[in-house]
Design a protein around this nucleic acid. Structure first.
Lengths: 144, 144
DNA sequence: CCTTGACCTTACCATGATGGGAAGCCCTAC
DNA sequence: GTAGGGCTTCCCATCATGGTAAGGTCAAGG
């Protein structure tokens, strides 16, 4: 199987397959006499594993650890669970951060009339000024 | 005020102040005779605006638009609100994606005994195999 | 046999926002 | 005058992915 077929069978782009090989996430594939990469069904299985791990948000580094555990018949499931739990915590932390942003933004957007007039509590918040506060004295951007 | 003092007063690192200047987010600062960057209180105000926008998750591109609106006395608050609303939608989409990941991961982690035995529903999910399914025939990683 | 088009190869560049470091100049205090 | 800290520019790294260019290969068909 060529890289294009392995890509189609796994859902991982050819570009990424080569990259994963380059960084050592997967072993270098076999090659034809003309230097084409050749993949087996087992290789595709590995690629699908990576694809699934990525879709669950695991980094390539975590994916590498999970692959190693998958391959290790002596693994303890606690080790796998630890990777997953740590990732869950990371996701929840990031979700919390973004939810805080959303909360603030929704409040500001709610307070903004969103009409043709210039007064805007969103800008006032960003500027750190109260309503009717000062405008920037000097035009602050590149085209000012 | 030197760049270090502007950094301290705004919370934006000197590195980032130079970068913002380079990409045109802020105008090139004044310079001393010996080429040191010089900042005014107004410049610091702009930097604090950027800092606050970034902390609410706005991209630098969105921040540039917000800065331009801030500076524009003729702005319509609807334009500001549109930027914020679009950003809120983006955040909520990403939150939803991550929550879906968390949901799946928590389910898998809950089903994983997390003990010294190798059987693990997390790996089974990633591998696309049911319980007791096949292990990879060929060691899949670089050190296999 | 030769062409055509699809596929493969490597190599380099780009993203977004930030940090790190090197080499060299400047400024202040002692 | 020197030491230490701050400033300058320039280059590199991150993380995961996409794009593109220049060139080799392969299969089908004239």
């Amino acid at each position: 199987m060529n890289i294009g077929q392995a890509s189609g069978a796994s859902g991982v782009s050819a570009k990424m397959i080569r990259y994963y090989e380059e960084i050592g996430l997967i072993r270098p594939s076999a090659r034809t006499a003309t230097n084409y990469r050749v993949y087996s069904d087992g290789d595709v299985h590995v690629l699908r594993f990576i694809k699934r791990a990525r879709s669950l948000g695991f980094s390539l580094e975590e994916t590498e650890r999970l692959l190693a555990l998958w391959q290790d018949r002596e693994r303890e499931s606690s080790a796998v669970k630890a990777v997953a739990t740590s990732h869950i915590e990371d996701l929840e932390r990031r979700i919390g951060e973004m939810q805080a942003m959303v909360k603030t933004l929704k409040h500001l957007a709610h307070c903004c009339s969103g009409n043709a007039r210039p007064d805007c509590p969103i800008l006032e918040d960003l500027a750190g000024t109260g309503p009717g506060g000062p405008e920037p004295v000097v035009a602050p951007t590149k085209d000012g």
